[in-house]
Design a protein around this nucleic acid. Structure first.
Length: 651
RNA sequence: GCCGACGUAGCUCAGUGGUAGAGCAACUGAUUCGUAAUCAGUAGGUCCGGAGUUCGACCCUCCGCGUCGGCACCA
C-alpha cells in the first residue's frame, strides 16, 4: 500500500504497487509524455519499475541534468546494436556514459577506423527512429552465462561470471537486441534523441589491463538537444585554439624535434616566460623558509640501489657509461636521494628541523613513447622540488603550511580551482604496514587540519609512501597532476638520514616530498592553455609593443621604448612601414598585452596612445603615466606596493 | 609499450603512377597612412627516412622514425 511523496510535498496513496509510468499518467498527460525515468528515494530507476512501498518519487525529464547520463548510457546501447547489425561477429563488452558522452568497447579482429563512423552513426539514427522500448529482464545467472556463451559473447559471459553472487543479473532488450546491463534506462531508443555524434575510435585494453586483449573503442558525445551539442562542439574548437602546442608555435615560445624526443627547445620568448615563473617560485620559497640547493645530474648506480629506485624503476632511467671507467651512472629521475646526501653531511640537530631543502631539479625519465604529450609529458623536465626533513610531530603542521603556500601560488598564477586526490598504499611497496598506517594517518590528519577536501585514489600511492596530488585541468578538460605532497618514512631509513633529538639520541627524520608546479614544463603547458596565450602583464614574454604611425615619429618611439625598458618591461619596437592597422593586428595576434601607438601628435605632445589587448579603446596619456601604469601592472603578485626587487623579475 | 590515424614550403592545407600548388609568413620595391590584414614582385621543397614494385613513385607495398587521439604507464 505505497504512499508516494512527490516533490511538491503532496502524498498519493495506492492500494497496490504502481509503476512510475502509471503514476506519471495519473498526475497528468504532460508529465506522462515528458517523464524518462524517475528517482526513487534519490536513486535513479526505470520508469517502468514498480513502486510497492512508501517512497519519495521525483520524475526525470529531458530538462533535468540527470537526463544526460541516461541519454548517454542509452546511446551506448544504441551504438552497440548498430555495430552488431552492421558488423556481425563483433563482440560487445562494456559501454558506459562518461563526462562528455559515452563509449563502447568492442572485440573485433579488424579494429574500427574513422571511416566506419558515418555508417555506424547513420544506423544509430535508424535505431533511435525505431523507438524500440527498453525492457528489463531478470535472468538466472547460469542461464545468462550460457546465453552469452552460446552467442559467442565470451566477454559478457566473463563479466557475469565475475559479478558478485548477490547481484541480480539483469538484461535489457531494445527490439530484437539484448545486452547485459544494470540499468536504468529510459523508455525507448527514441528518448536518446538526435543530439549525438560519434567522435573517434581508439584502442583500449579489456578491463584496463595491458596484458589483456586490445578492444576497439568508439567514443561518442550526446546531449539533451542540438543546442547543447553545438555548444560542446564549439567548445572543442575553442579548446583547439588554446592548445599549448599551437600557441607555443604561434608565439614562438618553444619547439620539439625528433633528435631530442621528449626534450624541449625553449626559444627566447618561452624562456622569458619560464624565468618569470621560476623567479616567482624562488621568491615564494625564499619567503617560506626553504633553502635552495643544487645536486648532480649523473649519479652512480649504487645510490639508486640504496634508495630502491634501481629495483623498481631502472627501465625508466637513462643510464650513462664512459669507456675508461667501470661505473654505471644514471641521469637522476628525481632529486630526493641527492637531497638526503646533503642532509647527511655533518650531524643534524632537532633544532634544524623542519629543514626545507628546495631544488629546481632537472630530471630525466624514460617515459613510454605513447605517454609523451607536447610539453606536458616529456622525458627531460625540471621540478620545483623540495624535501622537508621533519619529525613525526611536525608532519601535520608542515602539510598544512605547504597546502596554504600551494593554494596561494595557484591563485597568483590564475588557478582558482584545483582538485586534491589522496592516494594510499599501492600493492607493490616498501616498508611494513605499521609504517604505512602511520604515514597515511598523518596525511589524513594534516588534511583535516588544513581544511583540505580530497577524493581518495585507493592503491595509487608512491612505493615509499602515501601522497596528496593537486590536479589542474587543461583546455579540453584533461586532468594533469601538478602539485604533490608525499610522506616518506622509507627513504630516510634506506639512506640512513638521522638527527640528534632533544633527548640526545639519534632519530630518523620523516621526509615530505613536495612540489607545487610539479614540472615547469607541464605547468607552463597548462598555464599557456589557461590563459590562451594572453598572459597577465607580469608573465607576458613581450609586455608592450611600441608602434609608429608615420616614420617622423620613429625617434620618439625609440624614446618611448627606452623608457619602458628602463622601467623593467620587455618591449617590441615596431618601426615598420605597414599601416597602423596592420601593426595593431600583428601585435594583437601575438598576444602582446599593451600596444603603445605613437604618431605626430604624440611625438609633439610627449604622450602615447595606449591600447590594451582585446580592447578597442585607446587612451592617450603622458608617456610617464603610461610607463608608471604598466610598470605597476607588471609587478609580480607577490610584490607588495613599494616593494623592492623589480631588478629581479625583469632580468 | 598497445590500437588507430597522420607526416607535402616557416605555418595552415590542396594535389596526381608521368616536370610540385595556394593562402599567410619571409625577402625586395612602392606607399607615410590614426588603432585587428596597403599594393606589386621575388625567393622558398631530400613531398619524414630506408628498401621494394614499376619504363617511371610524393602517390602502390614493406620496414623504421616522429606526431596526434585513446589505452596502459606516470617514483
Amino acid at each position: 500500500m505505497p504512499a508516494i511523496t512527490l516533490p511538491d510535498g503532496s502524498v498519493r496513496r495506492f492500494d497496490a504497487p504502481v509503476t512510475g509510468t502509471a503514476l506519471a499518467a495519473e498526475i497528468g498527460p504532460g508529465l506522462a509524455r515528458a517523464a524518462l525515468a524517475m528517482k526513487r528515494d534519490g536513486k535513479l530507476v526505470d520508469l517502468s519499475s514498480e513502486i510497492a512501498e512508501d517512497a519519495a518519487i521525483v520524475f526525470v525529464t529531458r530538462r533535468d541534468p540527470d537526463a544526460l547520463s541516461l541519454i548517454r548510457h542509452d546511446a551506448a546501447h544504441v551504438l552497440a546494436e548498430a555495430v552488431q547489425e552492421l558488423y556481425p561477429g563483433t563482440q560487445v563488452t562494456i559501454g558506459p556514459a562518461i563526462d562528455t558522452g559515452f563509449y563502447y568497447d568492442f572485440h573485433r579482429n579488424e579494429p574500427f577506423t574513422p571511416e566506419d563512423l558515418p555508417a555506424i552513426e547513420a544506423r544509430m539514427r535508424e535505431i533511435v527512429a525505431r523507438n524500440a522500448p527498453f525492457v528489463r529482464q531478470e535472468w538466472d545467472r547460469d542461464a545468462a552465462i550460457a546465453f552469452f556463451q552460446a552467442r559467442g559473447e565470451r566477454f559478457k559471459a566473463e563479466l557475469i561470471r565475475d559479478l558478485p553472487q548477490s547481484e541480480t543479473i539483469s538484461l535489457y532488450s531494445q527490439g530484437a537486441w539484448l545486452d547485459l546491463c544494470r540499468g536504468p534506462h529510459m523508455r525507448a531508443t527514441g528518448d536518446v534523441g538526435t543530439a549525438f555524434k560519434l567522435m573517434k575510435v581508439a584502442g583500449a585494453y579489456w578491463r584496463g589491463d595491458h596484458r589483456n586483449p586490445v578492444l576497439s573503442r568508439i567514443y561518442g558525445t550526446a546531449w539533451r538537444d542540438q543546442k547543447e551539442l553545438d555548444a560542446y562542439l564549439h567548445m572543442l574548437e575553442e579548446a583547439e585554439r588554446r592548445d599549448h602546442r599551437r600557441i607555443g608555435r604561434e608565439m614562438d615560445l618553444f619547439h620539439l624535434q625528433e633528435e631530442a624526443v621528449g626534450s624541449i627547445f625553449w626559444h627566447p620568448k618561452g624562456w622569458r616566460l619560464y624565468r618569470a615563473v621560476e623567479s616567482y617560485i624562488r621568491r615564494r620559497l625564499d619567503a617560506a623558509d626553504y633553502q635552495e640547493v643544487r645536486t648532480p645530474q649523473l649519479v652512480d648506480r649504487s645510490l639508486w640501489e640504496a634508495s630502491g629506485h634501481w629495483d623498481k624503476f631502472r627501465e625508466h632511467m637513462f643510464v650513462a657509461q664512459v669507456e675508461d671507467e667501470n661505473k654505471v651512472l644514471a641521469l637522476k629521475p628525481m632529486n630526493c636521494p641527492c637531497h638526503v646526501q646533503i642532509f647527511r653531511q655533518g650531524v643534524r640537530s632537532y633544532r634544524e628541523l623542519p629543514l626545507r631543502m628546495a631544488e629546481f631539479g632537472a630530471c630525466h625519465r624514460y617515459e613510454p613513447s605513447g605517454a609523451l604529450h607536447g610539453i606536458m609529458r616529456v622525458r627531460a623536465f625540471t621540478q620545483d622540488d623540495a624535501h622537508i626533513f621533519c619529525t613525526e610531530d611536525q608532519v601535520a603542521a608542515e602539510t598544512a603550511r605547504f597546502v596554504a603556500l600551494l593554494a596561494s601560488v595557484y591563485r597568483d598564477l590564475g588557478f582558482a580551482d584545483f582538485r586534491v586526490k589522496f592516494s594510499d598504499r599501492p600493492a607493490l611497496r616498501a616498508g611494513d604496514d605499521t609504517v604505512w598506517d602511520k604515514a597515511e594517518g598523518a596525511l589524513i590528519e594534516a588534511c583535516r587540519l588544513a581544511g583540505v577536501e580530497y577524493t581518495t585514489n585507493p592503491g595509487e600511492g608512491a612505493f615509499y609512501g602515501p601522497k596528496l596530488e593537486f590536479v589542474l585541468r587543461d583546455a579540453i578538460g584533461r586532468d594533469w597532476q601538478c602539485g604533490t605532497l608525499q610522506v616518506d618514512y622509507i627513504l630516510p631509513e634506506r639512506l640512513d638520514a638521522e638527527y640528534v633529538g632533544e633527548d640526545g639520541v639519534r632519530h630518523r627524520p620523516v621526509m615530505l616530498h613536495r612540489a607545487i608546479l610539479g614540472s615547469f614544463e607541464r605547468f607552463l603547458g597548462i598555464l599557456i592553455e589557461q590563459h590562451a596565450g594572453r598572459f597577465p602583464l607580469w608573465l607576458a614574454p613581450v609586455q608592450a609593443a611600441v608602434a609608429t604611425i608615420v616614420s617622423d615619429a620613429d625617434g620618439y618611439a625609440e624614446q618611448v621604448a627606452a623608457a619602458l625598458r628602463q622601467a623593467g618591461l620587455t618591449v617590441a619596437l615596431d618601426l615598420g612601414r605597414e599601416k597602423i592597422n596592420a601593426k595593431v593586428r600583428a601585435h594583437s595576434v601575438a598576444h602582446v598585452p599593451a600596444i603603445l601607438v605613437v604618431g605626430r601628435k604624440e611625438a609633439e605632445a610627449g604622450t602615447v596612445a595606449l591600447r590594451r589587448l582585446g580592447g578597442e579603446a585607446q587612451e592617450v596619456m603622458p608617456l610617464a603615466a603610461a610607463v608608471a601604469r604598466l610598470a605597476a601592472e607588471a609587478r609580480p603578485p607577490d610584490f607588495t606596493a613599494g616593494s623592492h626587487g623589480l631588478a629581479d623579475h625583469h632580468s
